[in-house]
Design a protein around this nucleic acid. Structure first.
Lengths: 204, 204
DNA sequence: CCTTATCGATACGACAGCGTACCGGTACGG
DNA sequence: CCGTACCGGTACGCTGTCGTATCGATAAGG
């Protein structure tokens, strides 16, 4: 995961809040979020899960939405930005491989935030900045590069739907079949639908 | 449990709970659901919206989840079952035209239920039976008929994804672009992605 | 070694929502 | 014309959670 210095003050007792400790809070938030949803996420629950007291949470963050927003902002997804294989198909295959692994966690998180996002402005911004925009931006960049390379025409009608297709299927399968959209499923979808629609046959 | 006779005691004052009155309760539930989400749906709110008292609600339904489940079951979506144009492409175009109109309402409802569905078994069943299965079943039947007509091969790799694609994009666009997936958008998607992936070119 | 600041634990007030109980009014059935 | 049963309104108890305040303990710094 992410860390700066492996300073590891992992002795018996912690003193101040190290970045690692902070991340533990955020992890607890995400876990509670996935397990019980935003509405049933309680400060007591987060405190218990991260073995701290409510006081500590309220000392650092003013309210529950702010804590959740902070956790979302810290929910980093490094690993996608570096993909640049030189072909759109392979770029997307790499995305799918990556997304399949986090599929369960990410989808549960989105699902959990669901409607809370529509009520709290800060939460909505945090979710967009932390989860939506990065993944979508990366995919759109891939498409842009493919256009520049001449792989697909600039005005290809399917181009605008690539990210929506992937994100959509990612979230639709749990609803339809009750199981996560894992990598094999996403890969089949990519080869059977996304690439053909883009005019990128399998062996080209 | 629903209706007995269209007795229509639509005089000035209502005595017992007519089917129309019952539907008003359900409408109020759905509206509260869309507006505030499941967690913030209150019995007081439903009562106020449908101009009845909490007592009446609790006399008819034992608890809040049961009321919501009943409302979902009554959330009928007739209109899709009758589509059978003789070609898969036209069938899907009809679906898209229909889905685009209800897009906003349906999506908000799904979004609102989000995580509550994972906690309450009855709610999950109600949602599947009332919203998911009907739409998906209809689409899968369309694909089946197309296979029987020979429009597409039985083992076409894109066939399994048709419903997931449509449902997915329906729910992905609000998240990505912040606006509903209306009919024009869905139609563009259908023509640009779904049909090409199925090997059904535009003018065939 | 002593001061200080922060952490963990807990108790507390405030508030909102669920579900119940009661009470008066009003339409139906005989 | 009268009893019955149901509806609407409201007050109430209960629970759970937010956010605050207080207190002892413990690690950092001089």
């Amino acid at each position: 995961m992410t860390s700066q210095s492996a300073d590891a003050v992992s002795s018996s007792r912690r003193s101040k809040i190290t970045p690692e400790r902070e991340q533990e809070f955020y992890d607890a938030v995400c876990e509670q979020l996935r397990e019980h949803g935003y509405g049933s996420l309680t400060m007591e629950g987060v405190a218990a899960r991260s073995r701290c007291s409510k006081s500590t949470l309220y000392r650092q963050w003013k309210t529950k939405p702010q804590l959740v927003a902070a956790a979302l902002r810290a929910y980093s997804r490094t690993g996608l930005e570096d993909i640049d294989t030189g072909s759109l198909a392979d770029d997307l295959r790499a995305v799918v491989r990556f997304a399949g692994e986090r599929s369960g966690r990410d989808t549960q998180l989105m699902q959990a935030l669901g409607h809370a996002v529509l009520q709290d402005e800060e939460l909505r911004r945090a979710l967009r900045e932390a989860v939506v925009d990065p993944e979508i931006g990366v995919i759109e960049d891939m498409v842009r590069r493919a256009v520049e390379r001449g792989e697909i025409p600039e005005d290809h009608p399917a181009a605008e739907f690539v990210s929506a297709q992937l994100l959509g299927v990612l979230r639709a399968r749990p609803l339809l079949e009750g199981c996560d959209a894992d990598t094999p499923y996403l890969m089949r979808f990519l080869e059977a639908c996304v690439l053909p629609a883009l005019g990128l046959a399998r062996n080209t």
